[in-house]
């Protein structure tokens, strides 16, 4: 099980990039991972939950939008996903 996952906020959501207009698409859909998390044995459940957690971190970052997006503002915030079995448990920390 993940203890914590640190992903640079700028890696999650590239709204400031002219190349990015609608980010985040995954090949393995959440319903497949949720099914594995519900029905698999321990190792499979752990993998499915961890993958869901990281995938949801990307998705949530997209839905919430960039943090500290004013021009010139420091963008060193991070999103920390607490991996203690809780989906959608997203903690923001760091920054200004």
């Amino acid at each position: 099980m993940l203890n914590s996952v640190f992903i640079e906020e700028s890696d999650l959501y590239m709204a400031h990039s002219p190349l990015c207009r609608n980010p985040f698409h995954c090949i393995i859909p959440p319903n497949v991972l949720e099914r594995l998390a519900r029905t698999g044995e321990e190792r499979r459940r752990t993998m499915a939950l961890d993958t869901l957690m990281v995938s949801e971190t990307f998705r949530t970052a997209r839905l919430e939008g960039p943090i500290g997006n004013r021009e010139g503002e420091r963008r060193d915030q991070r999103i920390c996903s607490d991996g203690n079995g809780g989906r959608g448990c997203l903690l923001k920390e760091g920054a200004d």
């Binding site: 980010p23 190792r43 990307f58």
Partner: peptide
């Protein structure tokens, strides 16, 4: 990308591939 990450994604700028766990998912 990550440990046992069972997904591949496009984040608007680049592709990201996990290695899978070797038990349910192969490398992406």
């Amino acid at each position: 990308f990550g440990r046992n990450f069972g997904n591949a994604l496009w984040n608007g700028r680049q592709m990201i591939f996990g290695d899978g766990d070797g038990e349910v998912f192969n490398r992406m």
